[in-house]
């Protein structure tokens, strides 16, 4: 299965960093969105997107709300979601798990950590 990533972050810098990290891991098929609402539009317009990497704190619609929206949509309910965020306290992580994100990476991250979590998510969905 060819992976097509949707990288969601309001920071242009972070989108590029995640994008570059994915490239070094061999994933070149990437689209970007600036917030949760934008991400939902991209997902609705492009059914070939099959992996979402999202930040938490974003204007308009947060990553948590995005995850809830994706899980609430029957067509996308099984979409793998990786949360990449600065939030690292237990309550946040539990909240993210309740929103059914597949895994959680804390910023600043290393490519190794990103690879490890991607592999874990992919191993679980295959």
């Amino acid at each position: 299965m060819e992976l097509k990533f949707l990288v969601v972050d309001d920071s242009v810098t972070m989108r590029r960093i995640v994008n570059n990290s994915l490239k070094t891991l061999g994933y070149t098929n990437v689209v970007e969105a600036g917030d949760g609402k934008d991400a939902l539009s991209k997902l609705a317009a492009d059914s070939s997107i099959n992996f979402v990497i999202t930040d938490w704190n974003m204007p308009v619609m947060s990553g948590l709300e995005l995850s809830q929206a994706i899980r609430g949509d029957a067509k996308m309910a099984n979409m793998p979601i990786l949360m990449v965020t600065t939030r690292g306290v237990k309550e946040d992580i539990v909240q993210a798990l309740q929103a059914k994100v597949n895994n959680y990476v804390v910023k600043p991250f290393t490519p190794q950590v990103l690879k490890e979590k991607l592999d874990m998510v992919l191993a679980n969905i295959q």
């Binding site: 920071s11 972070m14 600043p108």
Partner: peptide
């Protein structure tokens, strides 16, 4: 590149 995450933070 990775160090530039500091900008977002």
């Amino acid at each position: 590149t990775m160090s530039l995450q500091v900008q977002d933070i």
